[in-house]
C-alpha cells in the first residue's frame, strides 16, 4: 500500500452545524485578547518585558545580551594577533556565497605589510549587505579563518551605496582575533 489512510474524526450533528464550535473558537481568541490586555499572556514571565502580549518592545528593549555564541550577524574580516590581514583573497567565500553578496578583487600583498610570504591579499573586498543572507557559508568555507559572522544584526541604510561594505569597514568591524595562523610565518 503506497498510501496511508488517515482516520478522519467523526463529527456529530452539533459539530456539523458549526455554530457551537464557532463560539468555542471565539471564546479562545477572546481569552487571549483579554489576557494580553491584562498583561498576563502565557509565557510572559520568560521575557522581562513591559506592555501587551509577550512581545519585546524592540528599540527600547533588546535581546543583545542573550544572543547565543553561534549567532549569525553581519560578516566581517578579521586581523590576526600580529596585525596581519588574514584574508589572502582566495575567493572561496565569493564562490560559495549563495546570494553573490561578496565581490573580491585580488591583488598583491601590500609591500609594507609584515608578511610578504603571503604574497596575495585582496585589493578590494566588498560585501553587499542588501544581498547578504547571513547564512555563514563564507565563514565555513574560509581556509584562513579570515571571515567571521559578527553579532551585528541591526543594519539600517538610507542609501543603496551604504549597503556595500568595503575592505576597511569590514576590517574595522571585525577587529582582531586571538589564535595565531602559522601558515604564513617563517615556521609554516
Amino acid at each position: 500500500m503506497s498510501y496511508v489512510k488517515i482516520k478522519r474524526p467523526k463529527f456529530s450533528l452539533l459539530d456539523k452545524v458549526y455554530v457551537v464550535e464557532l463560539v468555542k473558537g471565539l471564546a479562545i481568541t477572546m481569552r487571549h485578547l483579554v489576557l494580553s490586555l491584562l498583561g498576563k499572556s502565557r509565557g510572559k514571565e520568560d521575557f522581562s518585558t513591559k506592555g501587551v502580549g509577550v512581545c519585546m518592545q524592540f528599540p527600547d528593549e533588546r535581546w543583545d545580551s542573550r544572543l547565543p555564541e553561534y549567532y549569525r550577524g553581519a560578516p566581517t574580516l578579521v586581523r590576526g594577533e600580529d596585525g596581519r590581514e588574514r584574508c589572502v583573497s582566495c575567493q572561496l567565500c565569493e564562490f560559495i556565497c549563495p546570494a553573490r553578496a561578496i565581490t573580491i578583487t585580488p591583488g598583491e600583498v601590500d609591500p609594507t605589510s609584515n608578511c610578504q610570504k603571503q604574497e596575495k591579499a585582496p585589493a578590494k573586498f566588498e560585501i553587499d549587505m542588501l544581498r547578504c543572507i547571513y547564512c555563514g557559508m563564507c565563514q565555513e568555507a574560509c581556509p584562513e579563518q579570515a571571515i567571521f559572522l559578527s553579532k551585528e544584526y541591526l543594519i539600517t541604510l538610507t542609501d543603496r551605496k551604504q549597503a556595500i561594505r568595503d575592505k576597511e569597514t569590514l576590517y574595522r568591524l571585525g577587529g582582531t582575533r586571538k589564535g595565531l595562523v602559522n601558515k604564513w610565518n617563517q615556521y609554516k
Binding site: 481568541t29 487571549h32 485578547l33 489576557l35 494580553s36 490586555l37 499572556s41 502565557r42 509565557g43 506592555g51 501587551v52 502580549g53 509577550v54 512581545c55 518592545q57
Partner: peptide, 13 residues
C-alpha cells in the same frame, strides 16, 4: 490592534 492582542502581541502601538 485586535489581531495583535489575540496573538499575544501589542499590534501597531
Amino acid at each position: 490592534r485586535v489581531a495583535g492582542w489575540i496573538q499575544d502581541r501589542p499590534g501597531p502601538n
